[in-house]
């Protein structure tokens, strides 16, 4: 069996007159952490939204775990989604539910015949893993930004996904919390043997979490490799300035 988990070929996506992705090619290997870098509005999030079927590509091929996403029936798509965890930029916790209910929501709807005890055990185990067991009965409005991100990750892990997609995991967080979230991404990968894509424009996050970097510019990947291969001596002026700005800022 191939160790390729995601295979993207010639992917195009536009919104009205705006071409966002213009022929993207990418391979993602099992248990690899790939970081997709790029400035805001370059289509990084669009790429992973196509991966889970939230958006549909205009042209090209998007194979995830050996299945072409755009040709799946709703039932097949849901089966694939169970194998993919998606951590949203703003955590997307359900406002009207407690942390426990947030985590129960996907679990009870996808895995039948679980006893109450088993559900509670699973929830507590994951809250322990993200270091927030005390928040189980709290509402999302009572949590800090970093806590929300952690709970969001715990909620996606409850279905034991093979692939984790992180959309801007450190956006809007203070530097210490950023490091904690980066550590969490690495822990998740080690503990649950997941393959990950991290979407970010934060180079510190990229350096800490990524095995491989892919820089998205003008709708295509312009550089790919390890951190030291892509940065800091990039020949492309835009990639170099991206690096410079990030580190001058930090």
């Amino acid at each position: 069996m191939s160790d390729k988990v995601v295979e993207i070929r010639g992917l195009y996506k536009s919104f009205g007159d705006l071409d966002v992705l213009k022929g993207v090619d990418l391979d993602l290997h099992r248990e690899e952490n790939l970081v997709v870098l790029g400035r805001s509005g370059t289509g990084k999030s669009v790429l992973i939204k196509i991966m889970v079927g939230l958006l549909k590509q205009d042209k090209g091929q998007m194979e995830v775990l050996g299945q072409e996403v755009s040709s799946l029936t709703p039932k097949e798509l849901n089966a694939l989604r169970l194998k993919i965890g998606f951590s949203f930029q703003n955590s997307a916790l359900y406002d009207s539910m407690t942390v426990r209910e947030n985590m129960e929501f996907p679990l009870v709807r996808n895995i039948k015949n679980l006893t109450k005890k088993e559900i509670t055990y699973k929830i507590e185990e994951l809250l322990d893993a993200v270091g927030l067991p005390q928040t189980i009965n709290q509402m999302p409005s009572e949590l800090s930004g970093g806590q929300k991100k952690r709970i969001g990750v715990a909620r996606t892990l409850i279905l034991n996904p093979e692939i984790m997609l992180y959309d801007e995991p450190t956006a809007g967080l203070d530097p210490i919390t950023c490091v904690e979230i980066n550590n969490l991404i690495n822990e998740v990968r080690e503990r649950y043997k997941t393959t990950s894509i991290v979407i970010t424009h934060d180079l510190a996050c990229a350096k800490m979490t990524g095995d491989r970097m892919a820089v998205l510019l003008d709708g295509q990947f312009r550089a790919m490799g390890t951190f030291s291969e892509v940065f800091p001596h990039a020949e492309d002026r835009r990639i170099k300035s991206f690096y410079d700005y990030n580190f001058i800022e930090s």
Partner: peptide, 20 residues
């Protein structure tokens, strides 16, 4: 307002990607 705010904060997308 409730469903609208769930939509703009990606909570509806989060339900969808968790296969519900």
């Amino acid at each position: 307002a409730e469903i609208g705010s769930m939509k703009v904060t990606e909570q509806i997308d989060a339900m969808e990607v968790s296969a519900t």
